[in-house]
Design a protein around this nucleic acid. Structure first.
Lengths: 195, 195
DNA sequence: GTCTATACGAGGATAGAC
DNA sequence: GTCTATCCTCGTATAGAC
C-alpha cells in the first residue's frame, strides 16, 4: 500500500475506480476501503458519509473531464471540429484518463433518486457545463438554429454514453460521433443555403 | 387490498411502479411486498428471488412497450413517420401506460452489472428489438445508408431517455423527437439527391 | 397458496485506543 | 490522524403454521 499518497487521495482513487464501474449502490464502502488501504474512520472524517465521497469523486472527475474537453477543443481546426470535440474528448477520457462503465454523472443520478445538496450541486454543474458549451460552440455553426443544434447534440451525447450499457464503448463512441457529425453538417448546410 | 387480482399480478404491478421509478437497488423487496399486500413467500415462490421479479416485470414491460410501439407505427402516414414513431410511442408509454423515471431497461443494466441468464435475456431482447426495427424502417428512407441512420436513431433514442435524468421527460422527448426528425430528413434529402 | 415470524448476512457508521 | 473492533439497522430469504 502506498502510504506516501494521503489517505484522502487514496480514498478518492479507489472510489473512482469502483463506484463508476460497478455502480454506486452495488459498491459497498467496505470494498472501497480495502482498495484504498484505509479504515472506516478515515472515510467518515474526510467525507462525512458515502454520499459525500461520491460527490467528492464526481467533483474531481468533473475537473478532469473539463480539462480533457478543453484540450480537445484546443486541438480542433475549425468551428465544426470545436463543436464536435466532445467525441474525441470522450475517447481520450474513457481510454486514457478515467474509465467509467458509462456516464458517471447520469449513473449517479440514476442510482440516487434524492441526492443531498452537495451531490445535487455537482450533478447540476455538469449538466450546465454541457448545455452552456454546446450552445456557445453551436452559434458559429448554426446561427439562429444554435439552440436546436445544441439540444440535439446534448441528446446524442447522452445517448452515446447510455449506449455503452448495451454495447462495447468503442462502438457507442463511433455511432455517436457519426450521428453528431451528420447532424452538424446538416445544420451547416441548412444555414449556408439560407444565407 | 384487492385480493381478486392474483398475488402474482399484484407483485408485478407493485414491482413495476417502484423498481423503475425509485431504482432497482434503492427499492427493497419489503416495500414492494407492502405495496402489493403480499408476503415474502409469495414473492419467492413465484419469482425465485428479487432479480427474478425484476426480470418478470421487465418482460411484461417489453410486451406492453412492443404493443405501444406497434400502435404508433400503425398510426403513421408514411415511411418517415413510421421510422419516427418511436417518439410518439415513448410519449404514450410514459404518459398513459407505464411511467418510468427513465429507460427501465438501461436503468436495470446500469444497476445490475452482472445479471443472471434470465435477466440478461430480456435485456438483450429489448436491445435487439430496437436495432432490428430501426434498421428495417430505415431501409425505405435511407436505402444504402440505412445502417448508419438506424444506429444514429438508436443513439438518439438512448439519449432521449437518458436526458430524463437531467430534465423533465417532456423536454427530453421534445428534444429527442426534433433531433431524430432533423436527422431523418437529412438522410432522405441526401438519398434523393444521390438518386 | 398464503401468512407470521424469524434467521442470516451485509452494509453503513461509530467508540475508543494508539 | 489513523487503526481495531464493534454496533446496529436493513435487506434478502426461509421455516413452519394455517
Amino acid at each position: 500500500m502506498n502510504t506516501r499518497t494521503p489517505v484522502r487521495e487514496r480514498l478518492l482513487d479507489a472510489a473512482d475506480s469502483l463506484l463508476f464501474i460497478e455502480g454506486a449502490f452495488a459498491t459497498p464502502v467496505d470494498t472501497i476501503l480495502k482498495r484504498a488501504g484505509a479504515s472506516p474512520p478515515s472515510l467518515y472524517a474526510h467525507f462525512g458519509n458515502k454520499e459525500g465521497l461520491i460527490a467528492a469523486a464526481l467533483r474531481r472527475r468533473l475537473n478532469i473531464w473539463t480539462q480533457v474537453w478543453d484540450d480537445a477543443i484546443a486541438a480542433a481546426a475549425d468551428d465544426e471540429e470545436r463543436l464536435l470535440a466532445l467525441w474525441p474528448a470522450l475517447a481520450t477520457y474513457q481510454a486514457e484518463r478515467l474509465p467509467e462503465r458509462w456516464c458517471a454523472f447520469s449513473g449517479t443520478s440514476a442510482a440516487i433518486v434524492n441526492p443531498g445538496p452537495d451531490l445535487r450541486a455537482v450533478l447540476e454543474e455538469e449538466t450546465a457545463l454541457l448545455r452552456d458549451r454546446l450552445l456557445a460552440y453551436s452559434e458559429p455553426v448554426a446561427g439562429a438554429a444554435a439552440a436546436h443544434l445544441a439540444s440535439a447534440l446534448m441528446t446524442i451525447y447522452a445517448g452515446t454514453l447510455a449506449l455503452m450499457l448495451r454495447e462495447p464503448y468503442e462502438d457507442a463512441l463511433e455511432e455517436g460521433r457519426r450521428a453528431a457529425e451528420m447532424l452538424v453538417r446538416s445544420y451547416r448546410v441548412a444555414r449556408e443555403r439560407a444565407v
